[in-house]
Structures are given as C-alpha cells and as structure tokens.
Nucleic acid binder design. Structure first.
Lengths: 184, 184
DNA sequence: CGACTTATCTTGACAGTGTCAAGTTTGATT
DNA sequence: AATCAAACTTGACACTGTCAAGATAAGTCG
C-alpha cells in the first residue's frame, strides 16, 4: 500500500498498477493481487486509508475549535483543506471519480464516517422541517469545489497550495448565507 | 468520436480505448491513432466536443433569461445542470479529473469559453476592488459540487437525475449570499 | 498518360497491463 | 514428523497503447 501511495504521488490518480506496486515493493508481479484480490481491491484499500486520514484532519481541527456552530463548521472546512494540502495525491485519488468497492468494510467505515462528520457540523444550520442535505450540499460543494477546482485547474503540481487564500472569504459568504437559520 | 462517446456511455469515464473505438467504428485497430495521434488526443477531442455542448447548454438558458444579473446567474446554473442531465457521460468525462491536452486548439477554445461565460455572469456580483475569482469559485463550486456529488455518490446510473430538486434551494442560498454586493 | 505526393488506413510487432491457475516456499500446529 | 494454510512465485492469456512499415486510393502536375 505504501508503494501504491508513492505511485499515486509520482504518476497521478490513475497511475496505479498492480505490477508496478509489486516491483516497488520488491515482490513478484502477482503478489499484490493475492492480498487485494484485484486492482479495484488495491484502489479501494488505498482510498480507505485516504478517507481515514481525511477524517483525522477534520477531527483534529474540530478538537481545537471554539464551541459554536459556525466555528465548528469552519473547522471542518479547514480540516478538509489541511488534508488536501498534506496528502494531495490521496485527496485527488479519493475524489477522482473512479468507483471504489463499497462492499469493502474499511472503505465503507471511513467514507461514511467522513460524511457523518460533515452532517453533524451542518446540523445546527438546518431549519426545522428542512432536509439536512440542503445545507450539506451547499457546504460540501463550496469547500470541495474550491479545493478540487483549484488543484485540478491551476496546479500541475498541486503541492504549491499551502495557504488557500480565498477560503476565509468563501466561508464569510457561506456563513452569511446560513446565519439566518442558526438554531443557537 | 461517436464510437468514443458511445464507449463512455457504456464503460464510464475511463473506459475509452483506441482499439475498442476502432472496432466499433469498423476500422483497423491503429486507425484512430492516426487521426488523434494517441489516446490522449482522442480523449481531448471528445472533451472538446463536451465543452462545446456545455457552452451551448448555458447560452441556451441565457438566451431566454430575464435581463437581470440574478436571472442570468441562475440561467447558467440551470444550463450547467441541463448539460449534466442531457449528456451525463460527457459531463462526467470532462470533469473526471483526467488531464487533457491544453495545447489542442479546439479544446482550449471551448473550455476557456465555458469559463468566460461563467465569469461574465458573475461579474455583476464582484464588489469593486475585489478579485472576480472570489465570486466565481463560490458559484462554480456550488453548482458543480451539487451536480458532481449527486451524480457520483447517489447514482450508479446518473441518468435518473432529471429534476435536480435541490437546485432552487441552493440558488436561494447563493443569491442571498451575493445580494448585498449587486452593482444595481 | 505516368510519376509524384498526400491522406487514410492495415498489418505486424513490442512492451506493458490485469487476471487466473498452478506450483512453491515458509512457518506454525497438531 | 505430518499436515495445513498463508504468502508468495511462475507462467500463461487476453487485452491495451504505440510505433514502424507497407498498402491503397485520390488527386496533382509535367
């Protein structure tokens, strides 16, 4: 799996290859398939690790956030971008659009956990009677769209992004759009 | 190229193959490479067609929109989703994250045109002195995030999305976030 | 008419890929 | 000492992109 992540770093989100992983790990060409069943299995396992780090990044920010809905929402957004900065290859990989094996326990656990963290942070902004998705999509879209578009459009090497200069401005817009519906 | 689009429909955004295209088009396995130079060339040509249809969808909505900044902004958002509904395979393909050949004239023309349409629709909402990107990213992120997340997360077959039930709610939020900065 | 040039394709080869079946090693259990 | 399962290796197959070389046809020009 370490070899796989290294491969993602050097070859991009669709540069994974069982045989190349095997070579980098110093084993025979078919060894990875034994452990992961097939290429999709390896991809899914790596994506699961990605989601796990993703969750860690968000909860780390949450841990030192002030105790208000807005602060917590901003915290997970910052955590989101922390992850994108720290692990650009995993970030681009898990959001690359390729299908992972949802039956995989590890993957299901960590990816659904990520959405649970988002949902919890959005909950205070959901107006009574409204569907939670409405707010979630708005928040998720803004932060994900910002990160994803910035990384894919502007950067051949996404590593250059450290500061996310527009994030606070975006969060301002976002908070303004949501502030009328805070439940206290 | 028609064979390529058909292939995208049946096999997904990374199911393109020169040889399969050749087979479906009834020519020899190396014929497509002659016209498009290589697989990246074929991909880019198809993406260019995608962006062209994308622009058409937005301008079609613009043509019958009321003459106000908000109406125009909402129009391109609807156009965006029209395109995603009508050509899901092209939508998922051009936003799949894979790199296209930016030197390709056709591709450069149509893709930059798409961004120009967005920029123009966003311009009235940019506060004097602020950078236009700030608003563009917000708008683009919301509509793109909504479409992309909905299509990739919820739908094995994205075709089921016809109505985009949350769009108007999202646009409400968006308009509210921007309304304070309208230039008349 | 005949030589040429060009565009379009075919054929054949090569290295690389995922995947499967079969054998092999290794280490622990009984 | 015998057994057994996990962790591989080896070898094969079909598939992929890409390249070089040849074929075919159409058009141009002297």
């Amino acid at each position: 799996m370490d070899a796989g992540v290294a491969l993602l770093r050097t070859r991009g989100a669709d540069g994974l290859s069982l045989r190349e992983c095997a070579a980098q790990a110093g084993v025979s060409h078919a060894a990875p398939a034994y452990h992961f069943k097939n290429l999709a299995g390896l991809s899914t396992a790596i994506a699961a690790r990605g989601y796990s780090l993703f969750c860690q990044a968000m909860t780390a920010r949450l841990a030192r956030a002030e105790d208000s809905p807005t602060a917590r929402l901003n915290a997970i957004c910052h955590g989101y971008l922390d992850f994108a900065s720290a692990q650009p290859e995993l970030f681009l990989f898990i959001f690359s659009g390729q299908q992972f094996d949802k039956e995989n326990e590890d993957f299901a656990k960590h990816s659904s956990n990520a959405y649970a963290i988002l949902r919890k942070a959005c909950a205070p902004f959901v107006r009574p009677g409204a569907e939670p998705e409405e707010v979630e999509i708005l928040v998720w879209s803004v932060v994900h769209g910002y990160a994803h578009l910035t990384m894919t459009r502007k950067a051949d090497n996404p590593r250059f992004l450290q500061s996310w200069p527009k994030l606070d401005l975006l969060l301002e817009h976002l908070d303004r759009a949501l502030e009328k519906s805070v439940k206290t």
